[in-house]
């Protein structure tokens, strides 16, 4: 459609970077035709620049890599360990996984993470829902059915990651969120009218005021480029979670204009949002001590419901019960819009 911008369909004879080897692929981000060797070089160099330019890490820090066994986090684990060695970042890296307790799905991906542990020589910590909350996702689904189970999973996972990171005594948590994920979040925040989240969803480091900041080294990395090393598993409880309106829209956009993904992120960074736009005030949960804007954190409300046999507690519009607002990045009620409703692949 828009062929004036590098959409040349004829195959060039030589890689447009090294001008020596035959090109093996068309780079999704730029549509340059390049060879495999050059792809790895530019891919890793770009992430190195993002890490350095944004000062994501400091020498001597302990960093946990959120590892789901999905493609994004697997590639993140590889690139981080590689760059740490190559550029001598001086970081102590760890893998951190959450075991939701979904038979046939998480046990497979945990195998992948264990392979990564050996491959890259990174110590692995697995925290399980069973240990933290006393329930596995299998048991939760047995009780509440397939509706709303993504809510439990999403709320529990976010907290589980923080607890795991605290156990590892790390300074920061790196997650595999890629450019597609972030541009999708920008759009969703516009669609759902959330100006406060819109103002911070493109930040490469979040939660710096909290105990464990999170960062996204893949902020400018296209999912398609990560996928070139593709393997994936899909959550059995929400197999279509990956088919959100917004994600399909972004894929369509990318087809017409690959740079649209980066343009959305740029828009997100440039929006003129008054600094007076505030997030809900942060307190701590009176029950478990986790950060919460309410008396109890979301996980405790959901857990209370489960334990009392009232699983609807804390689901959907909760104004009546606790006046609670959804605090997690994963929102309830827009699953049909959002792709990774249950975050099945990545953290």
């Amino acid at each position: 459609m828009e062929e004036s911008h590098g959409g040349d369909r004829t195959r060039s004879l030589l890689c447009s970077i090294c001008n020596q080897r035959r090109p093996a692929l068309k780079r999704p981000k730029t549509l340059q035709q390049i060879c495999r060797e050059c792809f790895y070089v530019v891919f890793e160099e770009e992430i190195h620049r993002v890490i350095v330019d944004n000062k994501l890490f400091k020498r001597g820090e302990r960093i946990a890599i959120g590892a789901s066994g999905g493609k994004d986090s697997t590639v993140l684990a590889y690139v981080m360990s590689e760059l740490n060695r190559r550029h001598n970042y001086g970081l102590d890296l760890f893998l951190l996984s959450v075991d939701e307790g979904i038979t046939g799905y998480r046990d497979d991906s945990l195998e992948t993470v264990k392979r990564n542990e050996v491959q890259y020589g990174l110590p692995l910590k697995v925290v399980s829902y069973k240990d933290l909350y006393g329930w596995t996702m299998d048991e939760i689904v047995k009780m509440i059915g397939l509706k709303n189970n993504c809510t439990f999973c999403g709320v529990f996972r976010r907290q589980a990651l923080d607890r795991g990171a605290a156990l590892l005594k790390v300074d920061k948590l790196a997650t595999g969120h890629n450019a597609d994920d972030i541009s999708e979040t920008v759009l969703l925040n516009i669609l759902r009218g959330d100006i406060a989240r819109l103002s911070r969803c493109t930040s490469i480091i979040t939660g710096e005021d909290g105990p464990i900041p999170r960062c996204k080294p893949f902020k400018y990395t296209y999912e398609k480029e990560i996928k070139l090393d593709y393997f994936s598993t899909e959550c059995i409880y929400s197999p279509n979670a990956y088919r959100g309106f917004a994600r399909e829209f972004i894929k369509d956009l990318e087809r017409i204009r690959p740079r649209a993904i980066l343009d959305i992120i740029k828009s997100g960074e440039d929006f003129r949002i008054a600094t007076s736009t505030k997030m809900p005030e942060q307190g701590t949960c009176q029950r478990c001590g986790y950060i919460s804007s309410q008396k109890w954190c979301k996980a405790c409300v959901l857990l209370e419901g489960l334990n009392r046999g009232l699983p609807k507690l804390g689901i959907g519009r909760t104004r009546g019960v606790t006046g609670e607002r959804q605090k997690d990045d994963q929102q309830i009620g827009v699953k049909n819009l959002q792709s990774k409703a249950c975050g099945s692949l990545d953290f």
Partner: peptide, 8 residues
């Protein structure tokens, strides 16, 4: 405008 990078 968002998609074209005109957020500002």
């Amino acid at each position: 405008a968002t998609v074209k990078g005109q957020g500002y």
